[in-house]
């Protein structure tokens, strides 16, 4: 690499390639960009280690199944844990049918018309709205306007708010999955006299299901970790009792969930509460890890079999 530089120097009058200097800048740039990449990883490692050191000592079965308490050594996360699970069920039950249905509608039935374009722009706009704004929508619409159905600032309102929040993600995932199904399958179905819906239901959708599932699980794991909107809807109340899956339980105008519980404990001044907040974070992160691992498993499993 040195010799062409020398010959270039002797041949051309004005042109100075200055390769040595340029390669030095190259080297520096490469090192800086590697350091930038590693900085993110280092921060992640420090965060995880810090939380593990703080949280592991308090982690026990009692911690999982006890209600929260004014005394940090007796406090547990059972109501918060169940609250998160029920939120997950409500969110999934509402957002999956609506999101997948919308995705099918836009991708298979209404490809190019004006309404579809309007809905499409609208969805990309919704995806950029901060989650706390959804919280305000939930507070006003579900907490007040439809309070006679939801019971006010209840777990049902919280779940519905989260469902609206992740709807755009599920719609986009569904459309991407449907896009990857070859058109020949649709043509074959219609050539046999099936309607569009029959073709989609029996042939296109089954092929798209893995992609839809992956996107949906990732969206739901985002919903589980969301804190701001459910604090706005649910008022971050102190809830010592476990929620129940009955209509009255869902309408109970106070609820808690893991992120709310963590927020409560972190914002207290006592260090003992900070330690159990770290333990609760570990539980939350394990739930997220399991969900993400499921999504990756589904993706890999079905990708290789096709």
């Amino acid at each position: 690499m040195v010799s062409p530089q020398k010959s270039a120097k002797s041949n051309s009058g004005d042109y100075q390639p200055q390769l040595q200097k340029r390669y030095k800048i190259d080297r520096a740039f490469q090192i800086i960009s590697w350091m930038a990449t590693l900085s993110g990883i280092v921060v992640l490692a420090v965060l995880v280690t810090g939380i593990l050191i703080q949280g592991i000592p308090n982690l026990s079965f009692d911690f999982l199944v006890s209600p929260p308490s004014r005394k940090p050594e007796q406090a547990g996360i059972w109501p918060a844990f169940l609250g998160s699970i029920i939120l997950l069920i409500i969110t999934a039950a509402v957002s999956i049918p609506i999101g997948v249905g919308t995705g099918i509608f836009l991708q298979e039935f209404a490809k190019d018309n004006k309404i579809a374009q309007v809905i499409e722009i609208n969805i990309s706009n919704l995806a950029a709205v901060p989650s706390i704004i959804y919280g305000l929508l939930g507070l006003f619409a579900f907490g007040r306007l439809f309070g006679f159905i939801t019971g006010g600032r209840s777990i049902l309102s919280g779940g519905l708010t989260l469902a609206l929040l992740i709807l755009p993600v599920i719609i986009v995932a569904t459309r991407e999955a449907l896009k990857s199904v070859p058109d020949s399958i649709r043509m074959a179905g219609m050539a046999l006299g099936a309607t569009r819906w029959q073709t989609v239901r029996t042939h296109v959708l089954p092929l798209a299901i893995p992609g839809i599932m992956t996107g949906t699980i990732l969206a739901l794991s985002r919903a589980i970790g969301e804190t701001a909107p459910i604090i706005v809807v649910g008022a971050a109340a102190f809830v010592p009792f476990a929620p129940t899956l009955t209509i009255e339980g869902l309408q109970e105008p106070a609820f808690t969930a893991l992120p709310i519980q963590i927020f409560n404990w972190v914002s207290r001044p006592q260090e003992e509460f900070h330690a159990i907040a770290a333990s609760a974070i570990i539980v939350l992160m394990i739930v997220l890890l399991v969900m993400n691992a499921t999504a990756i498993f589904v993706r890999n499993r079905f990708q290789s079999s096709r």
Partner: peptide, 20 residues
């Protein structure tokens, strides 16, 4: 690894900022 960092709930980042 970067996707994991993106998936960390913001309340966990809040804990990290305030206490670490």
């Amino acid at each position: 690894a970067l996707e994991v960092l993106a998936g960390v709930p913001t309340v966990v980042f809040g804990y990290f900022a305030l206490l670490l």
